[in-house]
């Protein structure tokens, strides 16, 4: 069945700058706060001393039905971009155009908003509420979350006693229960056991089959990208250097051009892995 891939988020020339030096950073922040208070425009397009572009002129359309992997070395701007798309950071330049009603659920570090002294069940309410779930929505979803997380009887034990795998299972289950339009996953599935990860991947693939759903998956793991993505964006030093639906090609580009500081042998290994990858295996 042919389905139209609607644009869900239009990312237009987004740039973001950061400051390398903490003292300068504080001084700039203070100035910016004062400027904003009296209604002066912030000088967003020029770099001040010690500033750099964490992201520069990023443009792409996020379409429904797609699992878009964002790959790049550490510091290439992946997490900054996903925070901007999620609405947590504001872009200095450019815009994110999307429907007001579009629901984006970001999953960054799984431990945030999880309180170790409280039971898994109590944490479902806290973390779920942070994702914007209402009391009524919880009533129908709690059991669903518990079942998906597979933590079993541990649900009534303090989360502090959970293994890291259990914690991430619970957090992932809570996030998906929010039933977002766009799910932003930033390295969050790096922990957790392989069986549960496979279940998540299956879930993600089913998720984008529904109407108007899409996933942004931020990672460095070649395997995981090959396993689930159908589009690859390569970031290098804050620039979008490749955007392709040919996942293998995108990853090869990434390994060949951006994979710095790695031994040639390791590079070779990845290239072989990508070239020989067969999704049906």
């Amino acid at each position: 069945m042919e389905r139209k891939n609607n644009i869900s988020i239009h990312i237009h020339k987004v740039s973001k700058k950061f400051c390398r030096d903490i003292r300068h950073n504080l001084m700039y922040s203070f100035k910016d706060v004062l400027k904003k208070q009296i209604g002066l425009p912030l000088s967003t397009h020029k770099l001040r001393n010690k500033e750099f572009w964490a992201l520069k002129d990023i443009s792409f359309d996020l379409k429904s039905g797609e699992i878009t992997a964002i790959v790049g070395m550490n510091g290439s701007g992946k997490t900054t971009l996903s925070r901007i798309i999620s609405g947590i950071f504001q872009a200095d330049e450019g815009e994110i155009i999307k429907n007001e009603a579009l629901k984006i659920t970001p999953i960054f570090t799984l431990s945030s908003g999880v309180h170790p002294l409280f039971t898994g069940r109590e944490n479902i309410f806290v973390k779920g509420a942070a994702f914007g779930l209402s009391k009524e929505e919880f009533e129908e979803k709690v059991e669903e979350i518990i079942a998906f997380s597979e933590v079993g009887e541990f649900i009534d034990s303090p989360v502090g006693s959970y293994s890291s795998g259990m914690k991430s299972r619970l957090a992932y289950s809570i996030a998906i229960a929010t039933n977002p339009d766009v799910l932003v996953i930033d390295e969050a599935l790096a922990v957790g056991d392989t069986v549960f990860r496979a279940k998540c991947f299956d879930h993600i693939q089913q998720f984008v089959q529904q109407e108007n759903k899409s996933v942004i998956y931020v990672t460095n793991h070649i395997h995981k990208v090959l396993r689930i993505a159908n589009r690859v964006l390569v970031l290098d030093k804050g620039k979008l250097v490749n955007d392709t639906y040919d996942v293998k090609e995108g990853l090869l580009f990434y390994i060949k051009n951006c994979f710095k500081g790695q031994s040639p042998k390791r590079k070779e290994g990845f290239i072989k892995l990508i070239e020989n990858w067969n999704i049906n295996e």
């Binding site: 947590i88 984006i104 970001p106 570090t109 945030s112 908003g113 942070a130």
Partner: peptide, 9 residues
């Protein structure tokens, strides 16, 4: 801060 960095609130 951690909560605000990871959720849109």
């Amino acid at each position: 801060s951690k909560m605000l960095l990871n959720h849109k609130l």
